[in-house]
Design a protein around this nucleic acid. Structure first.
Length: 804
DNA sequence: AGCACGCCGACT
DNA sequence: GTCGGCGTGCTC
């Protein structure tokens, strides 16, 4: 009989990043299993926190203090299975994060408890207490002023009030009220005879019950109200008379209800290349090899069909499949495609779902009701069992890396799970990350190259326009004459165009034309960005918001204007230049509302607009047959950034956006505007030459010593005082340096590009290395020694996406 | 993260 | 002398 449990508590700090022992109450000893959530007392006082059981034992643990007892068990079944528990442990070490943070990232957010601290009146109310409590007996600390809290704490010592801690489990199952007939049809007919004739509704209810008595199954109330005149009132009367029972039916919130009935599609005929790819992947699955395939294929080479057929094979073999898609690529089109093939066996997880919807999808997976999971980054933690295949589409996408704790890359998690389940991983992309492509070169991954397009269409023609010349010709800085002319042509022929404004490394700010003053964030060293939708200036780092200035705060001039190019400005400009064109704008401002993204795409698909204007988000995953022109307004804004991945990002973006043109029978054309037409990223993207780009960029990375030739780790120290942060990072350097071999390279320490964010100063250093057996241990030790003391914060980011 | 304990300065 | 500031350390 197990009597003791090891619990990871919901206190995200380094000192508490380990299991604590608790006594299991006798009633739970038979049921409690690792992976269940519990509520436990923790620390002095009455504080209670949520925790995860990670182990149970019969023998008393080796602990000299007095053990506390588990206060409540929140689950009947473990929410983390043994695999996910092991994964959480590994992930915490790998990303230098807390185990509790890893566990919470794996689960729908509603399963993280919310806490409240309240003060309750214990004795009779007095004049003094009434002044604070009024007619209430309980107050929430969060609503109280500091002076009031002081008074209450005094009363607590006199036992006039008590402080209580509440742990709320927010995971609520959605239920439907349903009517369950209890009697037979004959009984109902008999009962009807005794009911007065004027009780019309009761007769109707009895007739309804008689008709459904045979099935005995509960009928959801909403179905009853939809088909009859009955309401809840007569049903309650029926309950009182013992005719029926009202039950709560568990149900799921189905975000894709309208797609459930999507017509089922049949597997398409594969090209020879595709067939070989499917065969190789399937073979690895059958042999239970955790092999990684890198499928490199241009847009239209039919990667999705390969995924679908490989998934089909996994399901046929009685296993499940996990498919990751970048958040932005998780369009209704993509979901429809997977649902079309696998119907209700598919569960979808992405950030557009409400927390309740997400929880329900998660439960469906956990219960084994879905064999295929499609989702964005965190879906890699889906509680699927017997995984037979993991797919990562657009594997180069930066959204697969989480930029907050735990800073994990979904690819690393995918590889871990594949090893656990002995199943293959498929990484797919038209422009693989250099890391993955290099691994394929070395034979660590198996490279599958798709050289032809499934529809045998030629790739679109790409024209590069040198904006340096264009600027001399016209005053317009956003539109070249060629692009305008081609846009006009498309509007005339009722064909559609997509325009992309590259916003990376770029923002719209307010500057005074007289004195050059730029409005800055008071907390961070960065300009505020203009937001026309809210008519305010916002800081993208800390969220600070203020009004748009009418006069320059520095010189009082009225000539304070908006600088930089935003989609709104381009839209206005385009309206003037092409008044006949109908324009749809898609950017963070117009897609913030839930479902807005899909709605805009639907409108464009229905030809409600001629031109779709947007930021990077339009580059991915859209598939509109009537788009014959794609324009990139500013291809090179990212090239100027001091980031070693700038060229790679630019190449990927241009290739991806080019793929949006001419996806059906119509031939597509791409116009790329740039100030750097000679740059190799632009030149090679123009010729759709990924392999050429790969070779060129690898040479450069080799020369400069960057990934994939080196692994990288970013160490950051921050403090409210600039010199404290600097002092700390130098101290860390002296600590790390002796543990490294001569092959490792230390960059920095340096202040971060945006040195101050949210009133804190950031200093960082980058470790570049190939093989450092002691590094993990030293960094783990550093994290443990520097436990948020003296106001210093340390963070470690393995393989950061950028150093700036 | 909270919370208590403990050691220094400014008050009834 | 005590109240309370926050630096330090612990939570099964």
């Amino acid at each position: 009989m197990v009597q003791f449990a090891q619990v990871i508590v919901d206190v995200p700090s380094l000192q508490t990043n380990r299991p604590y022992d608790y006594v299991i109450p006798a009633v739970w000893q038979a049921q409690l299993q690792p992976g269940m959530r519990v509520v436990v007392p923790f620390g002095k006082g009455q504080r209670q926190v949520q925790g995860f059981v990670v182990g149970t034992t019969a023998a008393p643990p080796d602990y000299n203090g007095e053990l506390k007892t588990i206060a409540a068990v929140l689950d009947l079944q473990p929410v983390l299975n043994p695999e996910l528990l092991a994964l959480a442990k590994w992930l915490a070490q790998w990303t230098f994060a807390f185990q509790i943070s890893c566990m919470q990232t794996m689960l729908p957010s509603v399963m993280k408890a919310s806490y409240s601290k309240k003060v309750r009146l214990t004795g009779a109310a007095t004049v003094a207490t009434t002044a604070i409590f009024h007619d209430q007996t309980e107050l929430d600390f969060a609503d109280l002023a500091p002076e009031v809290i002081k008074q209450l704490l005094k009363w607590q010592q006199q036992h006039l009030v008590e402080v209580v801690y509440e742990v709320h489990d927010r995971a609520k199952v959605k239920t439907l009220k349903a009517v369950q007939p209890l009697l037979t049809a004959a009984d109902y007919t008999a009962a009807a005879a005794k009911v007065p004739a004027n009780a019309k509704r009761q007769h109707e209810l009895l007739a309804f019950l008689a008709a459904h008595a045979a099935a005995k199954a509960p009928i959801p109330m909403h179905e009853i109200t939809a088909t009859t005149e009955l309401t809840l009132a007569p049903v309650h009367a029926g309950v009182a008379k013992g005719w029926l029972r009202l039950v709560d039916l568990e149900t799921y919130r189905d975000p894709y209800a309208e797609l459930a009935s999507a017509p089922r599609t049949q597997p398409l005929t594969l090209t020879a290349e595709q067939a070989t790819a499917v065969q190789q992947i399937t073979a690895a699955g059958e042999q239970k090899r955790d092999q990684v395939f890198l499928v490199e294929g241009v847009t239209g080479s039919g990667k999705t069909e390969i995924y679908l057929q490989a998934i089909q094979a996994a399901i046929t073999a009685g296993r499940t499949a996990l498919m990751l898609v970048p958040e932005i690529g998780l369009t209704p089109q993509m979901v429809a495609r997977v649902r079309g093939r696998f119907g209700e066996h598919v569960a979808v997880l992405h950030s557009g779902l409400s927390t309740g919807e997400r929880y329900d999808e998660w439960r469906r997976i956990e219960r084994g009701e879905a064999q295929v999971v499609v989702g964005a980054r965190s879906a890699i933690f889906a509680p699927l069992q017997h995984i037979g295949l993991i797919i990562m589409d657009e594997e180069h996408e930066s959204s697969y890396k989480q930029d907050e704790m735990p800073r994990y890359h979904a690819r690393d998690v995918a590889l871990w799970r594949a090893k656990y389940h002995h199943c293959p991983v498929v990484l797919g992309s038209a422009t693989p990350s250099l890391e993955s492509r290099a691994r394929a070169q070395k034979g660590v991954y198996q490279l599958i190259r798709l050289k032809e397009r499934a529809n045998h269409q030629p790739l679109p023609e790409v024209t590069v326009v040198d904006m340096k010349n264009e600027l001399k010709k016209t005053k317009e800085d956003n539109f070249s004459s060629l692009l305008l002319q081609e846009l006009r042509k498309r509007v005339l022929h009722q064909e559609q165009s997509v325009l992309m404004l590259n916003r990376r490394g770029f923002s719209s700010f307010v500057m005074c034309r007289d004195c050059g003053f730029v409005l800055q964030c008071p907390n961070c060293d960065i300009s505020l960005t203009l937001h026309m939708d809210t008519h305010s200036m916002k800081c993208h780092y800390c969220g600070h918001e203020e009004a748009i200035p009418q006069v320059c705060p520095n010189c009082q001039s009225r000539k304070i204007r908006y600088y930089g190019t935003g989609t709104q400005k381009v839209e206005t400009e385009l309206h003037t230049l092409l008044p006949e064109a109908r324009i749809l704008r898609m950017d963070v401002d117009t897609t913030r509302r839930k479902g807005a993204h899909g709605k805009l795409l639907r409108q464009f698909g229905n030809h409600e607009a001629d031109i779709l204007l947007g930021t990077q988000m339009i580059a991915k995953g859209l598939d509109f047959p009537d788009v014959t022109l794609v324009g990139v307004l500013n291809a090179d804004t990212a090239l100027g950034l001091p980031d070693f991945r700038a060229s790679e990002r630019t190449f990927q973006l241009l290739t991806q956006v080019s793929g949006r043109a001419g996806r059906a029978e119509k031939k597509g054309e791409v116009i790329v505007q740039t100030y750097n037409p000679e740059h190799y990223a632009i030149r090679l993207a123009r010729h759709h030459d990924y392999e050429g780009f790969y070779k060129r960029e690898m040479t450069l990375r080799h020369q400069t010593g960057y990934p994939p030739y080196y692994y990288t780790i970013l160490v950051t120290a921050s403090h409210e005082e600039e010199n404290e942060a600097a002092k700390k990072i130098f101290q860390l350097m002296t600590q790390i340096k002796p543990a490294l071999s001569k092959q490792a390279i230390l960059l920095g320490p340096t202040p971060r590009a945006i040195a101050r964010v949210n009133k804190r100063y950031y200093y960082q250093m980058v470790i570049k290395y190939k093989r450092e057996p002691h590094l993990q241990q030293v960094l783990t030790q550093i994290m443990q020694e520097n436990q948020a003391r003296h106001g210093i914060q340390i963070s470690i980011d393995r393989e950061p996406l950028s150093f700036i």
